[in-house]
Amino acid sequence: MYGTIIKQIREDKELTLAATYFGVCSKTNAIAFEQGKRMLAADKFVQVLDNLLISLEEFNWIAANYQSSAPILQEYLLKKSWNTGQLAKFEQHLQLSRQKGLNDLKLASFRLLHAYAVKKPSDPDDLALVSRYFAELSLWTLADLKLFANVSCVLPFSLMISLLYEALKAKQRYQNYPGSDALFATLLINCLERTFASSKQELSSNLLKQLAKFTQGQELAGYRLYERYYQALFEYQYGNKLTGRQMLSKVLQIAEFLEEKRIVELIIEKLK
Rank of each mutant, 00 (worst) to 15 (best):
A182L: 13
W82C: 01
K272F: 08
M39D: 15
R10T: 09
D144E: 11
R98H: 06
G101S: 01
L73T: 06
F148I: 01
L113S: 06
G85M: 02
A135L: 12
L208D: 04
F257C: 06
N103H: 00
L252D: 06
T84Q: 09
P121L: 15
Y236C: 09
L78A: 00
D43P: 06
S131N: 03
K120R: 04
H114R: 00
L52Q: 10
L258R: 08
V154Y: 01
A117W: 01
L87K: 06
M39N: 15
R173H: 15
D43H: 14
K270C: 05
L102K: 00
R132I: 03
R38H: 04
L207E: 12
A108K: 02
K171V: 14
L203H: 05
G36L: 11
S122A: 15
L137T: 00
S162L: 12
I72K: 10
L73A: 04
A135N: 14
L78V: 03
K241N: 03
Q216E: 03
S138Y: 09
A42S: 14
D123G: 01
L187G: 10
L94N: 00
A135I: 03
E235K: 14
I254T: 09
I62E: 09
E259L: 10
E202M: 03
R245N: 05
D12Y: 14
Y230P: 06
L233T: 04
K100S: 01
N190L: 08
Q216G: 07
E219N: 12
I254P: 04
E136S: 12
A232D: 09
A197D: 07
Q99A: 11
L271C: 02
